[in-house]
Every structure is written in C-alpha cells, then in structure tokens.
Design a protein around this nucleic acid. Structure first.
Lengths: 195, 195
DNA sequence: AGACCATACGGAACACGGTTCCGGTTAGCA
DNA sequence: TGCTAACCGGAACCGTGTTCCGTATGGTCT
C-alpha cells in the first residue's frame, strides 16, 4: 500500500503523480457525494481526468480510496473522544454525543455504512482502518462509563461500533427509518442494568 | 409477477414448468446455504439443470426467488407472534422471544440480512414482502407491551424490524460480533423508560 | 543542454456476472 | 395426429472491476 496521502513521503514521488493523487481525492470526494461510495471507478477517473490505471496504481482497492478521502474526518472524530470525556457532564453523556457524531458522519455519506459491512474482501482495509482508529476511543468512553456505574458491559467497544455502524445502513434512503432513534435506543439499553 | 409457488394456480401451468419451478426452488435453497443469497444466477440454473432464461421467466428478479424460498419460514414466524402473546409470561417476554427467533432466521441465512438492506431496486420486493408480513405482527407485540407499560414507543414496528435486521448484517462472518447480544441491548433500551 | 531511466500514464483488453432475446421444443388439447 | 400457445436453453450483450503493457515524462547526472 502506497499510502498516497501523507505529504512527507512526497519527496520520493514525481510531481505529476502528486497532482494526480490530489485530483483523484477531490474527484472521489465529489463522486462519493453524487453517486455514493459505490460509484464506478471509471467515473472517478474521468472526473479527475486520468486513466483507470492511474487510480489502481495509487489506490489498489476501492477501500484505499475511501479511507484516504475520509481519513481526516475519522481522525478528528478520534480526537473528539477524550475531549468529550473532559467536557461532558458524564461519561455516558460523552459517549452519547460521540456516537451521535459518528452517526452523523455515516448517514451523510451515501452508502458508507453499507460499504463498511460489505463482505467484499477488498473492503477489509476500510473496515480495519475505521476499527483501529475508533474502537480504542470508544473503549475509553465505555470504560469510563462503566467506572461510574452508568453503563453495562453487555457490549464491547468493537461490538458497539459495529452495532452503530449497522444501524446506519440505508438510513439515507428510507424516510420511514431513523437511524438516530435506533441508536438512541441501543444506548439506552446500554445504560439500563436490565438484560 | 407470476407468483410461481402457489399450488392453486398450477392448473394453468404446464407440467414441465411446474417441475422446473420445483427444481429451481430446491436448487436455490441449496445454493443459498452454500454460497449465500448473492450466489450467481448461473449457478442456481446449473444446479437445477435449466437455462438462465428459465429462471428469469419464473423469477424476474433475484428477490422473487429469495422470497419464494423463504416464504414458508416467514409465514410461520408471522404465526408465532399471536401464539407467543398468549403463552409468554408478558408482552415484553413475547417480543423478546419472537425477535430472537427472527434473528436466528436471519443469521443462519448467509447474507440474507444484507440483501434485505441492499439499495439495489430489484430487492425492493424482498423488502416489502418481509415488511408486509412481519411488521404487523411486530406491531401487535409492541402495542401489547406498551399497554402494560413495559415498552416505550421510542421505535415503531417498522423501525424496530429494520433495526433488528440491520444488526444481523454480517453476523455470520465476524466472530467478534454477536448480533444476538446487540439485539438484546436494543430490546433492553426499549424496556427502559430512559431516553 | 542533452541524455538516460525509473517512475508514472492511459486506455485497450480481459473477466465476470446480470439480463435480454429468440429460434427451437413440447405439453396439452381437439 | 396435428396444431398452437407456453415454455425452454443458452448465446449474446452490457456494465463494471481489474490487469497489462507500450508510451510519455519528471528528475538527475554529465
């Protein structure tokens, strides 16, 4: 994996490659909004004004492209965790706010939640990227909540993240379904000692 | 839609068509467990010993085939609802048992839950079929539970079914994730007045 | 400046699965 | 037995992911 977005490594990369990577990230972001993360590779290539081969060189799998496009948002979400733990009125409130922000992120990206759950092996990278970045943060919030007795240990951090991600699938295309409400109930279940 | 499974209409159908439909249902059921509901159409046709054209004539969309294969199980699940309401110790207990049985059904069918959430328009039929059959039953259980004050109205019947279905996506391929546990927490959230 | 080459580019070509279409076949009936 | 509507099979077509390779070029060294 070429890790095409980190600037430091750019010293070893040709200027035209640098330009193309930037153009691809911009084009991909736009196409993701327009047609979802499942948009045909050719469409992204066309918008960026490059050939399909160029995409595959820099982003061997579609997941690499998705990760690169959203890495900044994932990073800032990861940073929000500890921050909320300090500022919120309780660990449980911090978790609620943090999860809400994650839900907002997912439901505004067409098909992102679904892609996270794709059985297509090429999406494993996407999955593990999100997981490795966010699960530890979620774990801290959960642990804090358990420490104060607010939260049960019915779900681990990984399971909670997966549950929330799953609940967001298809939320943007079904007006009868409110992912936020479902997630709220899930968190209520985590708060009640009842099982 | 030809409704190819109901015996009554068979009087208007040729015997060879009847045989092929039976062979297709059997082949599809076998292929679904072998390779999931996303198995290539050609594979089902090959196992049934028919051409692909024959599949498309009787089952215009993949969803029609999936519905036909699982209709019996959906029907018996729908019947279980009122039954449980009579025999269980409380409406809330009835809902829990019923939902658990639904979860069992979904997680043992490779990819079925995912197919239910596919954005592919050809799966709309699958979705509406499940919904029209099971949502009313779920609604009865929910209403009964609200009547006794056990359950909140944070989620409607449709939303609950969707949430449960979503939580089951990918459960069979990820040993770190327990869909049953997640669903249990969701139901706990429905029981607690807390939101 | 000129030349060299590793790097990068573009898009044709291939793979694969869904879907359509139509010439041939056959069940059911008179 | 012969007729016809219903049905069959699979070739062909299309869209999309993925690979491959001949060509172009940025960077560097002389």
């Amino acid at each position: 994996m070429p890790d095409p977005e980190s600037a430091p490594a750019s010293s070893r990369r040709r200027a035209d490659a640098e330009r193309n990577i930037a153009a691809l990230l911009e084009a991909a972001a736009a196409e993701f909004v327009r047609a979802g993360v499942d948009v045909p590779v050719r469409d992204v290539a066309t918008r960026a004004g490059v050939g399909v081969g160029t995409i595959y060189r820099h982003f061997p799998t579609r997941a690499d492209l998705v990760i690169a496009v959203y890495r900044h948002q994932i990073d800032s979400l990861a940073q929000r965790g500890p921050e909320l733990l300090r500022t919120a009125s309780s660990p449980s409130a911090a978790l609620t706010t943090w999860v809400d922000e994650f839900v907002d992120f997912l439901v505004t990206k067409h098909g992102l939640a679904g892609a996270l759950r794709s059985t297509d092996p090429s999406f494993d990278a996407l999955h593990t990227s999100f997981v490795s970045r966010l699960v530890p943060v979620c774990g801290e919030l959960l642990a804090a909540g358990r420490g104060t007795g607010e939260l049960t240990d019915a779900l681990g951090a990984y399971e909670l993240m997966r549950s929330v991600g799953n609940l967001c699938i298809g939320a943007e295309t079904d007006e009868r379904y409110d992912a936020r409400a479902a997630v709220a109930v899930l968190l209520a279940g985590l708060r009640s000692g009842d099982h």
